[in-house]
Design a protein around this nucleic acid. Sequence first.
DNA 1: TGCCAAGGCTGCGGAATCCGCAGATCTCAC
DNA 2: GTGAGATCTGCGGATTCCGCAGCCTTGGCA
Lengths: 183, 183
Amino acid sequence: MHSDIVASRSADPKDSREIRESPRESARESRNGSTPHLDAVSLAIIEQLQEDGRRPYAAIGKAVGLSEAAVRQRVQKLLDQGVMQIVAVTDPLTVGFRRQAMVGINVEGDVESVADALTAMSECEYVVMTAGSFDLMVEIVCEDDDHLLDVINRNIRAIPGVRTTESFVYLKLKKQTYMWGTR
Amino acid sequence: MHSDIVASRSADPKDSREIRESPRESARESRNGSTPHLDAVSLAIIEQLQEDGRRPYAAIGKAVGLSEAAVRQRVQKLLDQGVMQIVAVTDPLTVGFRRQAMVGINVEGDVESVADALTAMSECEYVVMTAGSFDLMVEIVCEDDDHLLDVINRNIRAIPGVRTTESFVYLKLKKQTYMWGTR
DNA sequence: TGCCAAGGCTGCGGAATCCGCAGATCTCAC
DNA sequence: GTGAGATCTGCGGATTCCGCAGCCTTGGCA
């Protein structure tokens, strides 16, 4: 997961030490796929930052029962590992990108390689492998209709292995939250 | 857009003054739907925060050519207006929510009212009205298969006006970015 | 034309926060 | 038992945040 994040981070050579994992963690990961282990405290920290990405470390520490420095170290680690990002999110339609769409894709052959090709495209902001009548679902952000047409017809359909695509142009974004940790 | 954000903000009475718009802005909005006007500087600020949601105001100011205080005022206004959120985002599959799915929905009658009902559900983190073979697309986050089944069969299908649903269970999240402003 | 209100920017000073570091504690492996 | 590694705490110093006063520009109005 987060392959783009990991890629951008591993481009930074000084972080290579952060990526290797302790023996203890890898033992836990072995029974859980490649998912890094997250204890209750880290989850609580994430919840705090899902409410407000700029909340001070001291305030988070008071909420989760840790010192300011400990929270800071944990947050930095979560960011380094690519488990979490702290970013501004908007509705693209309100900031100048006038066409946005979800595209369902069917693949023949290796799905993963198609997914990697889509991930490399800057217009694709979201790529998911799915079960169901689509193998992949991709969200794309474009500046106008011509751009959208180009991306779908020339870029996506040109990827080897793509059999069919079906597009769902966005009319209105009704909800966008990241606070599922706090419900 | 951002109906959930707006709702949570308007619950705060002291912010009511922020919502009214200046005559100048409303004139610009009239030729642009209800979208609040964003000038190049605000877009540049958003780009900075899409790279790092915790970047200091002074650093942003240096990048966009504004004082620290001016950046702070603009950011606060963008947050108050609901144009932007600064939050932590993760892959839900890595933090304990083991089932996630995109659901395409067909509606008979008023699409907006169905969308509002979906927006009110805590399991729906993303609701979009679309053109194409679905009227709505919804991303849902669940703890396990039983929970997922419940949400789809009992909650979503029970909404008046929902004609059909089609589910795409997530197998793997490959990409998730918010940096389209910086390409 | 002159005046006024409103919005936005700057500079500033005090409070709060961030940040690196040293030391303590704990766990695990050998 | 002992050493290595990971994590937490406490603590200064540097940085950042925050509110406020003042200035400037814009737009409305008589």
